[in-house]
Amino acid sequence: MYTGKSISDGFDKNGEWWYSHCFGVSGEAGFVCNMRKAVSGYMEVAREALLWDVVFEWAAGDAVDRYLVRRVPLGGVADMSAGWRRTADGPSVNALGGSTVLLPAVLAKRQLLGYLRRTAPEAGSHPAGEGLDLDEAYEQVISTSGPVRFEMGRNTYWLTHDGRYSDRHRFLRHPHPDKKGDGS
């Protein structure tokens, strides 16, 4: 469990999140629902121990996202950008949504999981009753190994090979063969 030494606390040497075993997250059946219950339980324990704050919750969520991204290997996948936007009318704290520049596929997928985690509470339900529920949306992102686009509630989320690189980010670039990485 979180001991305050690093944001990697709670993970063993193999990258497995040991707290998840209390909720049966290791199995495939109901994985996402159990994973979300495990994170919720972890936050509750932290609150009771007076360790919780917004930064702790962000760090724990990010650590779980790093774990989930590794469930489907992305080696050799071209760089992608992640994003979300409000697709249906209604109040939103972030009415415009957000997106990233082109990033290595694993980082873009992690960003999409972060967008999903942070925007899910205000996503609500789709006005026409269409789209994915939260568990299906997580499974969609976790299992993807390429571009994806889906609606959850009043929001649309995506991973795409379209976008631009930023000169501020230094990493080995793997542009899609049909894209130049400059928005064209």
Rank of each mutant, 00 (worst) to 15 (best):
C22G: 07
R71S: 02
S26P: 00
H161S: 10
E57R: 12
L116S: 10
G10C: 11
D182L: 15
V148I: 15
S99N: 06
Y165R: 07
R36V: 11
P147I: 06
L51G: 03
P121Y: 11
P91I: 04
L74S: 01
G183S: 15
S166C: 05
D79H: 02
V77S: 00
T156K: 06
Q140H: 15
A128C: 12
K109W: 00
A95R: 04
D178F: 12
V141P: 00
D62N: 08
H126R: 08
M80S: 01
N94G: 00
F56H: 13
A38P: 03
R173H: 13
T119Q: 15
G15W: 02
R71D: 00
Q111E: 11
R168A: 13
V106N: 05
A29N: 05
A38V: 03
R70I: 00
G114L: 05
A59W: 10
W17G: 02
L116F: 08
E122F: 07
G41W: 06
G146L: 01
M1Q: 14
G114A: 10
S99E: 13
G114T: 09
L159A: 04
A120N: 07
V55C: 04
K179W: 12
S145V: 01
A46E: 11
M35H: 02
E28S: 06
T119P: 00
V106F: 03
D162S: 10
G27I: 06
V69W: 00
R168L: 14
P175N: 13
E136F: 05
G27Y: 02
S40R: 11
I142D: 04
V148K: 01
Y115P: 03
D12S: 10
G181D: 05
S166V: 02
E139L: 13
Y19M: 11
P91M: 07
G10R: 10
A128D: 15
R164K: 11
V148N: 02
Y138G: 06
R71E: 01
S184W: 12
R118E: 12
R86A: 06
G41R: 03
Y67K: 02
E130Q: 14
L96H: 08
L159V: 03
S145I: 00
G97R: 07
G4E: 13
R66P: 00
S20F: 12
T119W: 10
T160Y: 04
N94L: 14
R47A: 12
A38M: 07
S6W: 09
D62Q: 08
E28C: 01
G83N: 05
L116Y: 05
V72S: 09
L103E: 06
P121D: 08
W84A: 06
